[in-house]
């Protein structure tokens, strides 16, 4: 009975007192905002890097231009550095070193977070997309080229669509990881969902309800994402139906 009473108090203080539920709502907004834009940035970066890397690896030695070699070198350094250092450290460097002069406004922090997570996610997406491109039978590229289509057109209309379909589960995984990992933006002071729970804890000395609440909220968001991805995957599998 005592537990029930405590839970009631916890719920009251966490959600109703001082309109505390606002912290969760705004937090969800910021978490989603950072995730969605970081995802877009990560996808663009990732696909670009993957195309450069696989174009480099697929061209015969003699035909590689100097530009392609340099771009490939840059991509390799990017992948090594980003995948070789912790996300948290990258975020701290981005905010306290690179953007040291920026004022601590929400807008600045959101931009910084999107950039950091986008750049980070791009490195993982790049390797996922590259594995997808490499998994496509080389006869598909040859067939495209033999019809007179150039490398870029064959990539765009034949290889990439098939690659995306094959890597959708891995990309979904990356998206889910990204969504959850945005919780580390609390270290630069951005009021995301996790920070909301921490603020409520410091105001009310309640820990159980706020942290369980955000755990459930993260879980629901992930479940929703998995559901959407599952639908997408089934739609893209259409061409495999016999």
């Amino acid at each position: 009975m005592e537990f029930i009473e405590e839970l009631k108090l916890g719920l009251y203080q966490t959600f109703i007192l001082d309109n505390n539920y606002q912290y969760f709502l705004k937090g969800i907004g910021i978490t989603l905002l950072v995730t969605v834009f970081a995802l877009i940035l990560g996808m663009i970066l990732g696909v670009l890097v993957a195309i450069i890397r696989s174009a480099h690896d697929q061209q015969p030695e003699k035909k590689k231009g100097i530009v392609l070699r340099i771009l490939n070198g840059i991509c390799k350094v990017y992948l090594t550095v980003i995948r070789g250092t912790p996300m948290l450290v990258q975020l701290l460097i981005m905010w306290f070193v690179i953007w040291a002069s920026a004022r601590s406004t929400d807008a600045n922090m959101i931009r910084c977070a999107i950039l950091s997570f986008g750049i980070n996610s791009g490195a993982y997406v790049a390797e996922i997309v590259r594995s997808g491109i490499m998994s496509i039978d080389k006869g598909q590229m040859e067939a495209g080229r033999s019809l007179g289509l150039n490398y870029a057109a064959t990539m765009r209309f034949v290889i990439i669509p098939q690659a995306i379909k094959n890597i959708l589960p891995a990309l979904g995984n990356e998206l889910i990881t990204l969504l959850k990992e945005t919780s580390v933006v609390t270290v630069i002071g951005l009021k995301d969902l996790t920070k909301g729970a921490m603020i409520i804890q410091s105001k009310t000395y309640q820990a159980f309800v706020p942290y369980i609440a955000i755990a459930v909220i993260y879980l629901v968001m992930v479940l929703f994402l998995s559901w959407v991805l599952g639908k997408l995957e089934r739609r893209m599998r259409q061409s495999d139906l016999r």
């Binding site: 039978d137 006869g139 598909q140 040859e142 067939a143 495209g144 033999s146 034949v158 061409s239």
Partner: peptide, 22 residues
């Protein structure tokens, strides 16, 4: 080469139809 290949059709052992297209 892309212009040349327009005038030379090629048929492969493993067909190589584009799997993502009808």
């Amino acid at each position: 080469v892309n212009l040349i290949r327009r005038h030379m059709g090629m048929v492969f052992q493993h067909f190589n139809l584009f799997a993502n297209l009808t």
